[in-house]
Nucleic acid binder design. Structure first.
Lengths: 153, 153
DNA sequence: AGGTTTGGTTTGCATTGCCCACTACTTTGA
DNA sequence: TCAAAGTAGTGGGCAATGCAAACCAAACCT
């Protein structure tokens, strides 16, 4: 059906717009999109490097640098795992948590005028539809707000 | 109210998922997300460097490199503008056009199983909601499929 | 004409992200 | 039990992305 194209288009266009908002707000706080995601993920998790890399669909070595830079800024920290002495787990610091919170608030504020184009019932509807879209599936794409991952790639 | 958070969350999560699809499929064709967008934009436009940069929210200098690499691969080409001898306009080559087409098709195919979680009427509904979301607003975020820009940032 | 603005490129830099090699620890299996 | 194989993380090398600043050339003002 040709309507698939319309939906794909709408989805892609909306996604780019959302990413643009995230990118801009992130950069105002010297955070890349990826760092934003890392921070979001760590808000309710304390994963190992490899887990984190898997969530984000990145190479382990990429994670090293990413975490290293975030650590240097005091946003996250590394701890040695107790049960596996090879493993390192990453967690967010209070400063990082506060920053993540602030960013999320700004994103919400920026998105708000956009969302206000819809009526309250439409918003509820949209939320439901999006949830059933990206709700349960493969977990290679967690949101910034990062809600629990289900399975790896 | 608090449902804003849920919608923001759903929107962001969905966007990340969509971007992951685009990134993956792009990379299978050695195309970055940005190059994908460039190609998409050029499918029905022949802008100048600066216009293109403005659409994408990028610096002119970034565009130079981006276009240069795409040109080296034969996907786009540069032409001298007739009315302004400083200006350079960029257009897509047949090869580039074909690649863009192929990528869009793959994206559609990849998104399809996801979209199939919704019934036909829900899909129509979603399309409409997304369209009114990112339909007319500020144009700093055109989709890959790139439909006409309205105004610069 | 002379000064300013505008369009693009170039250079230099940090970040992202991949691949590959390497170390250190775990797990396995003979 | 102890060597072989596997797994966790790091570091180096490389290319692409993206910004900023310096720059050249053409256009626009008066």
């Amino acid at each position: 059906m040709r309507s698939d194209v319309a939906l794909e288009d709408a989805l892609v266009r909306t996604s780019f717009r959302v990413m643009a908002v995230l990118t801009r707000i992130g950069s105002e706080h010297d955070l890349s999109l990826t760092q934003l995601r890392v921070l979001g993920l760590l808000r309710d998790r304390r994963p190992r490097m490899t887990e984190l890399a898997a969530f984000l669909g990145l190479d382990k070595s990429t994670m090293s640098g990413l975490v290293e830079r975030a650590e240097r800024r005091g946003l996250v920290a590394r701890g040695k795992s107790a049960e596996d002495r090879r493993a390192v787990d990453v967690f967010i610091t209070p400063a990082g948590h506060e920053l993540a919170e602030r960013v999320q608030e700004e994103v919400r504020a920026t998105l708000a005028p956009l969302l206000d184009r819809l009526r309250a019932d439409e918003r509820r509807l949209l939320t439901g539809l999006l949830d059933s879209l990206s709700g349960g599936g493969t977990a290679d794409t967690r949101g910034v707000t990062g809600t629990l991952p289900v399975n790896g790639p």
